[in-house]
Design a protein around this nucleic acid. Structure first.
Length: 420
DNA sequence: TCTGGGGTCCTAGGACCC
DNA sequence: TCTGGGGTCCTAGGACCC
């Protein structure tokens, strides 16, 4: 059996943990730059706030309904996620943290256990220990566990937030209930094609011939079909090192000159390099991209990217910054207003051992230098030591008008309790 | 005025090898 | 007139996930 534990409205729930006055009230969390809605409490969903909605288009709806708006606070969400995962890890050694708010648990060998009871206990323990409500689904495959979780979340009164699919009858009932576009692994494009064929539910999907599924949805679709039929094709995945590390941002205003973009791109490269060193890896290539604002049809559009193969693998901030600058210089065109840029580190390999180049290698002194910088920034706060090419005044602040305190990770933002 | 960010996997087709 | 067969690697693009 697999278990899937998923936090309910995770970011919204995190914001409410330390604001119990907001329980039962509609709240939304916005993306970086306060751009789009990326999380909604159940109350906000009921009021018709769509997922991904641009905030500026819904200001009126927010105000009229007294919807509390938050800027995203990833320091808080990341820490709350760790707490939830750490409680979950006490239930089985075999666990895959699938995303910030959900984890697959493997319960092979737990045949004698009462899984639904265990699910209820998990729920309770996590709620008590972190304040985050979760839903739990159990089934024989990952895709079915996802569906069981959906059922648990959709009918909390009837299920208590925990649902187990352990018979064919329950499996078929769930498949007939679930809309095909809500199946894990079926996205917008495939859903459109399926709708055209009159496929409405997960059950309808499973009736399709294998050949059609293979031809139209490749082996990925076929594996999914097997999973829904109850045949295990997906296993828990190990925590692997990342194959690519992206740092990309939209700007607060349009940038038109190379020096302005240089500063951004260097900072992105440095951020990527830090993540690279954290996972003890080097990269062999990087991509830099820039583009204009594609929401503005009336402006001239420019969308360019380049992949630079590096002469040697490195994780040095200054070397990667240098290469990123070179790459940017090659794609930058004058006369456009740029809105977004990014640096993506590619072809990632372990730091040790790696193949040295006969002629040219990463500057050996950088290793100690980076270690020192990482330690200083780790102890005294990030951005204490930066490259000269980065903006020392940090003028490029993100728009975050409703940023909540970092209750759990910052000593001076911790809550104060008054005892009378 | 204002529209997020970070990932993975698979396939087809081209270039190349013997 | 007639032009093999079997591979690998790389890339761009498309699909999906949170």
């Amino acid at each position: 059996m697999f278990g899937l534990v998923d936090c309910n409205n995770f970011y919204a729930s995190c914001e409410r943990v330390f604001r119990p006055d907001l329980n039962g009230k509609p709240i939304v969390v916005l993306s970086n730059n306060d751009g789009c809605v990326i999380a909604r409490s159940n109350e906000a969903k009921k009021l018709g706030v769509p997922m991904g909605a641009p905030a500026f288009k819904h200001r009126e709806l927010f105000e009229k309904n007294d919807i509390k708006v938050f800027s995203s606070n990833f320091a808080l969400y990341g820490d709350m996620s760790n707490r939830v995962m750490s409680i979950l890890s006490t239930y089985t050694p075999k666990m895959e943290i699938y995303s910030i708010d959900e984890a697959f648990l493997n319960f092979d060998g737990f045949e004698l256990f009462d899984l639904p009871m265990m699910g209820l206990e998990m729920r309770e323990k996590i709620l008590k220990g972190t304040g985050i409500p979760v839903s739990v689904g159990f089934a024989s495959t990952k895709a079915l566990a996802k569906i069981a979780n959906c059922v648990a979340k959709k009918f909390p009164e009837r299920t208590g937030g925990v649902y187990l699919i352990d018979t064919d009858e329950k499996r078929l009932k769930a498949l007939k209930w679930l809309k095909v576009e809500d199946v894990w692994g079926i996205g917008r494009q495939h859903a459109k094609k399926l709708a055209y064929l009159g496929i409405r539910t997960a059950f309808d999907f499973v009736q399709l011939p294998d050949s059609w599924v293979k031809n139209n949805m490749s082996v990925v679709g076929l594996r999914l079909k097997r999973e829904l039929e109850g045949e295990r094709t997906l296993e828990l995945e190990d925590i692997k090192q990342k194959q690519s590390i992206a740092t990309t941002r939209s700007f607060d205003k349009m940038y038109t000159t190379l020096p302005e973009l240089n500063e951004r791109v260097v900072t992105f490269a440095v951020t990527g390099a830090e993540k690279l060193r954290q996972q003890k890896c080097c990269c062999n290539a990087l991509m830099v991209f820039i583009h204009t604002n594609y929401f503005k049809d009336d402006l001239a559009q420019c969308n360019r990217n380049i992949v630079l193969k590096l002469p040697y693998p490195t994780n040095s901030s200054s070397e990667l910054a240098k290469f990123a600058k070179e790459a940017l210089a090659q794609i930058f065109l004058k006369g456009y207003s740029y809105k977004k840029a990014g640096v993506i580190l590619l072809d990632i390999i372990p730091e040790m051992p790696h193949q040295l180049n006969i002629f040219e290698n990463s500057n050996p002194k950088h290793k100690a230098l980076m270690k020192a910088i990482d330690r200083i920034n780790g102890d005294f706060g990030s951005h204490k030591v930066i490259l000269a090419a980065q903006d020392p005044a940090r003028r490029w602040k993100m728009k975050q008008e409703n940023y909540s305190p970092r209750y759990t990770t910052k000593l001076d933002e911790i809550i104060t309790i008054k005892c009378e």
